[in-house]
Design a protein around this nucleic acid. Structure first.
Lengths: 139, 139
DNA sequence: CCTAATATTGTACTAATTGTATCATTGTGT
DNA sequence: ACACAATGATACAATTAGTACAATATTAGG
């Protein structure tokens, strides 16, 4: 299973906020492959209890990591490391990733009977929808 | 008999609730005639066991589909695809399926850090690659 | 055949587990 | 004393799981 103990070392007298320490240590464990994409992190309450900290402090750390797209928090489900390619991957590898992703998408659409024209048009539409949504969000 | 294997692919880390994934995948299989009117779906417990989820999660998905008049659940009998799904319903479902598929693809690409331009360009490229491959295949 | 017991199926309600939102409290620096 | 950031407390919402039940089908006895 993807259960981890996630041993973190907090320093309560360092002056650094707890949530910052949690964030950076998870980031570093990810960078060192102690944590891997897909891994489930402890629940906010479980980790909080282990660290002797309020669970909202853990939740705050998780939220920052979530906003940074490093983890994915899901209400009622749990928290998982996202499938982000490690920072050391090259641009070329990233390109290959997008190719694979795109090909899977196209294959699935074709398998469901959609035509090239329909797929192409839908991608344009949905990209546009997102862009417009983002614009409205800023207002 | 009208028994189907009903292979569903769940992603437990996608952020989408399990019941939503079940609903949309059954919708798409209906829209694309992998499932047909009159087909019996697996029992809530059977499907739950196969998917390794609680049977109430399947029941919730079935209930949503039932409310949408897409399936008919009958206590003590089983669950069946509704007999006369109007053509415009399946057409609409099909469209929704492609939207859903496309949005998932775009979200994933964005999450991996690709831009709208890159995604758009890659879709064009890969569609073109496929078309050309198909042309060569005919020669 | 008919009928009653049993099994199978979906339903309803509840509980448990998760993250979220909001505000209060604390503590530190100026 | 004040301002501000960090942390804690409390209530909430979403998802999934547990348990008991009702409706139907199937099977066993006669």
């Amino acid at each position: 299973m993807t259960e981890k103990k996630l041993t973190l070392q907090l320093d309560f007298h360092s002056g650094l906020p707890i949530y910052t320490q949690i964030v950076t240590q998870i980031q570093s464990q990810l960078a060192n492959e102690i944590l891997k994409p897909g891994d489930q992190l402890p629940t906010v309450r479980a980790l909080a209890q282990e660290l002797r900290v309020n669970f909202n402090t853990v939740a705050r750390a998780y939220r920052m990591l979530d906003e940074a797209r490093i983890i994915s928090t899901q209400q009622g489900r749990g928290t998982y490391i996202t499938e982000i390619p490690p920072p050391e991957v090259t641009k070329k590898l990233q390109e290959e990733t997008l190719i694979e992703l795109t090909d899977r998408f196209i294959s699935e659409a074709y398998r469901l009977g959609f035509t090239e024209r329909e797929v192409s048009q839908m991608v344009r539409d949905r990209l546009k929808v997102r862009k417009e949504a983002k614009v409205r969000e800023k207002e």
